[in-house]
Design a protein around this nucleic acid. Sequence first.
DNA 1: AATTACCACAACCGCAAAATT
DNA 2: AAATTTTGCGGTTGTGGTAAT
Length: 270
Amino acid sequence: MASHCKSKSKNQNQSSSESFGVIEDDKISEIRRGPWSVEEDSLLIHYISVHGEGRWNLLAIRSGLRRTGKSCRLRWLNYLKPEVKRGNLSPQEQLLILDLHSRWGNRWSKIAQQLPGRTDNEIKNYWRTRVQKQAKVLNIKTNSPEFKDIISRFWIPRLFNQINECSSSSPPPPCPTPQLSDSDSLPAAGDGNRRHFDKEQNSTSSESMGISQVSDPFSDVPSWNHGGGETAAENFEYPIGDSGLQLTDGIDDDDSFGGCLWNFDGLWQF
DNA sequence: AATTACCACAACCGCAAAATT
DNA sequence: AAATTTTGCGGTTGTGGTAAT
């Protein structure tokens, strides 16, 4: 399981360098930080298999792990938990992220709830490394109307094409559809759940791009579905039909964003 | 072959809400 | 009801891998 961590091979079993957390032998009881070792993973998995999740601080103490409860919780939820999917995000999942982010902003955990097996951390990383990177290249803000327009004009159709190519070659198995309840609409402004939420939402978009004159800005965007739908796409199907996306089902569009910012209708015309 | 720059992602941090005492 | 502890969230950072030079 831990071997999935592509970048941890050097650190995973290190005992001599221990550049994180444990400093010296006589301070062996200090809190460890940094990458988790295989032994730590095993310890955590075993403890949870016996005692279950929760009471993370207690878990941290009783399990023998020299980690904080927070660290244990994060390791379990983002990596060790059996339901956690690994691998690249499928086009369907990317579409869903793009759409849900347009509705909910940086509410990663909320978005993650709609992508079974995906964690808020993973989605957040996707947004930062992929989406925000493109915005940076284009020198516009991700929350600007210009960028959203570019997404809907270029990026989303591209994902649709990928989905179509995959489904034409091998039809996807039946999968759950994201269930969005009435309570999924954004809470009223000032709701405590939206703590840092508005940081990125004040779109100024002082930079104006001539959208109509823009050539495909994502021509250099790689296909991130390296697995060809062999990972998440197998278990998750974005609701697609002749009528286009159906994500609005059950969603109260009367949220603080004024509803979905991207008009998915007519995407097939592209 | 060595060095540098960039990328992706795991993990940490601070803060606030929720739960418990 | 107040204080304390636990949990959860979003932002940020650190690190290893890899492509480019």
